[in-house]
């Protein structure tokens, strides 16, 4: 019945800040605890990068999220930065050195850090200018000889196919309101009735794919009905349920018990995260072309990310 390749269409990047605010910062603010539960394990190569630094290093984790890399620097200090305050609050158990800041405008003195890491962060920046600005900022705050490690999502992935490089990727989270019948664990199915333009649509048994071109028009969503079962979709590989973004005209209308239905489905909230997925060599070329203060010393593929390690040159002022 359901296949679950993400079908993601292109978006027109008209307004970087609005896009990032709606589809990055506020999403992470909403999903912070759930996101955090799924992001507790450090990636080994990032961990070994931090462990390879000189003892007593001062490190900045730019886009630290829930802080899974903040405790690794055992002899030194890692300062964690994120735009999302709810993630920073979760990171408090990992580090007392936290700052709410934007990776394109680091509030730090130049020539300060032994190393900076930016793990799965700048793919959330919606223009090349901003991605370059972030890379330049990393170089600026490094001491000469300091190292930066940058991970970005790759366009080339086994499990996901991207139609274009600028995409919205769903984050799905089980609704808190989902009820479970005691005993036999059969779930109630909730129906919501919503009016959207002239359509009345239900959630719960159909997933809709949003036409992303219209994402920024306030009441201008259009949907293609895909008829895909939610239960057959896995994690964030599914197509989108964009309904929660739409202003509700009629709220919950009825709730039915579907006890005879064995094949029940859970109810999910879906949040759309903006990504610019990188092609092979794209990140390295950005650093080579625009960030003259550093030299790339390694470039590789790890955990579906393109990764670049670079060192700040001694004779920059």
């Amino acid at each position: 019945m359901a296949f679950c390749k993400p079908s993601i269409t292109s978006i027109d990047i008209a307004n970087s800040n609005k896009l990032e605010s709606e589809h990055v910062t506020s999403v992470y603010d909403s999903i912070a605890p759930h996101f955090s539960m799924t992001r507790y394990k450090p990636w080994p190569r990032v961990e070994s990068f931090i462990q390879s630094l000189p003892h007593n290093s001062l490190v900045a984790d730019l886009g630290c999220g829930n802080g899974k890399y903040l405790h690794i620097n055992s002899t030194g200090i890692t300062i964690g930065c994120d735009t999302c305050v709810n993630l920073l609050t979760l990171a408090k158990s990992s580090s007392p050195f936290l700052i709410q800041a934007d990776t394109t405008n680091l509030p730090f003195s130049s020539n300060t850090f032994d190393a900076v890491i930016s793990i799965a962060v700048i793919h959330h920046l919606s223009s090349e200018e901003r991605r370059v600005e972030a890379l330049k900022e990393m170089a600026r705050v490094l001491i000469p000889g300091g190292r930066m490690l940058v991970y970005v999502w790759a366009m080339e992935q086994d499990k996901r196919t991207f139609a274009t490089q600028d995409v919205l990727v769903p984050w799905r989270m089980k609704k808190a309101s989902t009820e479970t019948t005691e005993g036999n664990k059969i779930k109630k199915k909730k129906y919501r009735k919503k009016k959207l333009k002239n359509k009345v649509v239900k959630t719960g048994d159909i997933v809709y794919e949003a036409n992303l071109d219209n994402l920024f028009g306030e009441d201008n969503f259009t949907f293609e009905i895909e008829n895909i079962s939610i239960t057959n979709c896995k994690e964030d590989l599914e197509i989108i349920n964009e309904l929660e973004k739409v202003e509700e005209i009629e709220n919950v209308v009825l709730e039915k018990e579907q006890t005879q239905l064995e094949n029940t489905r859970d109810s999910f909230d879906t949040f759309m995260r903006y990504y610019h997925v990188f092609r092979e060599n794209e990140l390295r070329e950005l650093v080579d072309k625009f960030v003259s203060e550093v030299r790339v010393i390694d470039s590789y593929y790890d955990h579906e990310n393109w990764c670049v390690m670079a060192v700040k040159l001694a004779d920059t002022s």
């Binding site: 800041a101 934007d102 405008n105 200018e129």
Partner: peptide
């Protein structure tokens, strides 16, 4: 315990692509 150093969009545009010297 967390300083909020985020700038508004307008402030950010004013800073944008300017060199940030020590």
């Amino acid at each position: 315990g967390i300083p909020n150093m985020l700038l508004t969009d307008e402030e950010e545009m004013a800073v944008d692509s300017e060199p940030k010297s020590k």
